[in-house]
Design a protein around this nucleic acid. Structure first.
Lengths: 337, 337
DNA sequence: TTGTAAGCGTTATCAG
DNA sequence: CTGATAACGCTTACAA
């Protein structure tokens, strides 16, 4: 590999001059700059990020913490969309993105030390048991961090509007005449708590009592789980007229369970999902669901992180909530009295 | 950040000794090793990958070329599965993965120079217009490369069994009594050529003439496109009894188009997809499709690349084809004569 | 305007 | 068994 010194030799000059020339330094004569740059290109010079970073204490690389063993990782469209957006926003700002992951063969086992090991300028935490002490260590360090859908003190968080989203979704369902609305929610994460909150707010607002037996837990993204919960709801003495699911994939599980019970979703019974993944628009009937703006979420995360990295002395960028929207489909039917 | 020199000072020894101690060098007395390691841990030492790589000419990082602007990037489950698998296999071998991407703000615009810039030990090309000169430059360099689903001379390729897969799928369809089998294929990539080949082989084998009017082109992963093509097929004087699609998402487009035409897929007409994404098993009716083993594909790619990296003088690892399997669902109905 | 030299945090060589 | 020293490729005071 050809390096600065080689160019210097070929140009009868010093490495310092070449280094400056390559970066169009003002202190060099335009003639030298051109001469050197031409030669560099001719010789096929490629700079070395590591050497540069070592000196500049800046790597232009961003780490992503993404660990979602229980739900299929990247396969989950919501997350892959978020990450795709982080990727393209970061790249267009000149940052490379690298997954940060703990593994036996790695020199370290903590996210923080991995980030340091790789000289990352900052880290985005996408999905993780946020209760993991490794995450706490990370956010409490001086490493710039942005989290998605979880709040830590003094850390910029990019939030999906889980409470408002659920509230709007339930509002919509109520507006179609439903009163007996069940909610199968995901495991008890922060996200779930927010969704439950929104669900309750909406019901209260419309003077509908919250019934314990209409609230069930399932795992996110486990259609079978949701199928079971659905059946339990059906067997209630006074079953719901509409069921909300933790996500669109789970709703599909509910869909199947209902069909097996001889019901036609969107007709005999109503159902609503969450996420608004591609499938939800392709499926017939089209899903009634809440579309989370995952792309905007990822983009904003990258932006805020880079802002923080590039203005280390400015106050920590404020958290933002990204709005989604109700996707009115055909799975929630108007209720005839 | 604390560095080797600091530990040396604290231990009244030299950096050389500390460096060796940290890596359990045989030439040090167990006592010193322990003493130094203890101190290092105590001081919260984290090694620096860049400095190490600079010296060792080995970064333990792998680049991924993944650029799929036309089909939604990572959102495509097939690709996200492949990448997830590359990620976990690489990580468990101690390699970090970084996306390689061309961008204005990057110091270079070619994949090869980006890989060099970042000191990558090797690169996996997942999806790209393989005709891109940047890819050619990459595979013709001395950078270790593994490609997925595309063959270059002297480069290890991990292939999905596109020809055999399509052949097996058509075999299965024929076995259910179909003779008029149409194929809506994706744009003319290598993958498509292989699929077409398999389609034709299967038909020949069963003495079924290949009819031009039964072969249509659509874009991969564009359900609307496939919907149009489907309607064209329906309007044929002698329409097919079964239609094969480029992928499961496209099949969904066909599904909808057929319903609109008043037909019940899996009953009045048969359809088959490709990929075997999660959705295909969740949908009712369950998709008849060909399941590509994307996880195995990614895993194998990482393995072969690492093998190549760690044995630079050994011959280039041989290409492998990963088998998938027919997923018999309910969308291809037995044809009653 | 250009060049010298030191240093970023490691590891490898070789001498003690 | 331990330690000086140079080198990896680059940038940056500071000197010329």
């Amino acid at each position: 590999m050809i390096k600065i010194k080689d160019i210097a030799k070929a140009c009868n000059t010093s490495s310092a001059t070449v280094s400056k020339a390559l970066r169009n330094s003002e202190e060099l004569s335009p003639a030298t700059i051109e001469r050197i740059q031409k030669k560099a290109k001719e010789m096929g010079y490629v700079p070395n990020a590591y050497a540069r970073a070592l000196k500049m204490k800046r790597s232009y690389s961003i780490g992503i913490v993404f660990h979602d063993p229980t739900h299929g990782g990247l396969k989950h469209e919501y997350f892959s969309t978020v990450i795709e957006a982080i990727k393209s926003e970061s790249e267009s700002e000149g940052y490379a993105i690298t997954f940060l992951s703990r593994s036996l063969k790695m020199p370290s086992d903590s996210y923080l030390s991995l980030a340091r090991y790789w000289n990352m300028d900052g880290v985005i935490v996408v999905s993780e048991e946020f209760t993991d002490p490794g995450i706490a260590e990370l956010v409490n360090s001086n490493m710039p961090v942005v989290t998605i859908d979880y709040i830590f003190p003094n850390v910029t968080a990019i939030l999906s509007d889980n409470s408002e989203g659920m509230e709007k979704l339930v509002d919509y369902i109520v507006s179609l005449g439903h009163q007996r609305i069940a909610f199968i929610h995901g495991e008890m994460t922060d996200v779930t708590k927010k969704r439950l909150e929104g669900y309750q707010i909406a019901l209260h607002k419309h003077n509908i009592p919250v019934r314990e037996e209409y609230i069930k837990e399932a795992y996110f993204h486990r259609p079978k789980d949701s199928g079971h919960a659905t059946k339990e709801l059906l067997s209630l003495p006074n079953p719901p007229t509409c069921i909300c699911y933790p996500d669109d994939i789970s709703m599909l599980g509910g869909f199947t369970a209902l069909q097996q019970a001889g019901l036609v979703p969107g007709k005999d019974i109503s159902i609503a999902g969450y996420d608004g993944v591609e499938l939800s628009r392709l499926y017939r009937p089209c899903f009634t669901t809440y579309h989370q703006n995952a792309t905007e979420l990822g983009k904003e995360a990258a932006k805020k992180l880079i802002e923080r990295i590039e203005n280390p002395n400015a106050p920590i960028p404020s958290s933002v909530t990204i709005q989604g929207e109700v996707q009115t489909g055909d799975t929630v039917a108007p209720l005839k009295k």
